[in-house]
Design a protein around this nucleic acid. Structure first.
Lengths: 130, 130
DNA sequence: CAAACTGTATATATTGCGTATGTACAATAG
DNA sequence: CTATTGTACATACGCAATATATACAGTTTG
């Protein structure tokens, strides 16, 4: 598992860990049962505090994306591809609700909004191809 | 101008003021030149601190949606409908970039994403009709 | 002019979050 | 037993968001 952490970003380290591990799990890059690095090993490797990693793993635990066994480590939970897609959809739904409501109340039409969404997706998929 | 402020929300008071005034201006409900309530009057009316209102107005000033004249008050800036739509589009673009990138990296397809967007818009326009 | 309103500037206090440190305890692997 | 794992707690520091109070500067109104 490869993580890219930076404190140049305004995004907290914990949040970066959660976001990247989460994406790896939901996209299927980390199979169910995969043994995640221990909080101490990851902290050492990424040069962050043990607590920072622990808080990140706690968040993933609450979301039931991983589970832990005392003395053994953290492991990716067993989730079907359908469940993964539903989780990602619900996550997206929650994160888009306020911005979309704001855009509508600022006078944008449904077509305006969809155009912006398509524009962002196009630019992102171009990046991914490169 | 009608504002609905609540401290039950997790959204800061300043932010609520900015968001609502901003929406009123961009949607055309507040015409250019409109004389906004003074910071003291609005603070009294909404039972919030004068500074809270001042900070909110400062944000709107920085975004050039309003301007001020010492001793006279705050006024809605002169902006064309085209400019308003562009501002709203740019605002939406900025607020959607991270969530959409996250969704794609979590394995959702463009169609998955557009479906979620349409779903939210439909539920919101239904509310607005009621 | 004088009073009552405007916006502006500054200093200060409080709160909460992110982050970090240290210590101790519990379970597993070798 | 020893080393490693996860877990729990108390503590502390920095920083940004938030809020309060006070004083200063320009405009309107009577």
């Amino acid at each position: 598992m490869i993580l890219h952490l930076t404190d140049l970003s305004d995004e907290p380290l914990q949040s970066q860990i959660v976001r990247q591990v989460r994406a790896n799990i939901l996209a299927g890059d980390l199979a169910p049962g995969y043994n995640l690095p221990s909080i101490r090993a990851l902290a050492r490797e990424q040069k962050v505090s043990v607590i920072t990693v622990q808080r990140a793993y706690e968040t993933l635990l609450r979301q039931e994306l991983i589970h832990s066994r005392r003395g053994k480590g953290f492991f990716v939970s067993t989730i079907s591809n359908e469940q993964k897609r539903d989780i990602a959809r619900q996550h997206l739904f929650a994160s888009l609700q306020k911005p979309l409501l704001a855009a509508l109340s600022e006078g944008l039409s449904e077509e305006n909004v969809l155009a912006v969404v398509r524009e962002i997706i196009k630019s992102e998929t171009r990046k991914a191809e490169a």
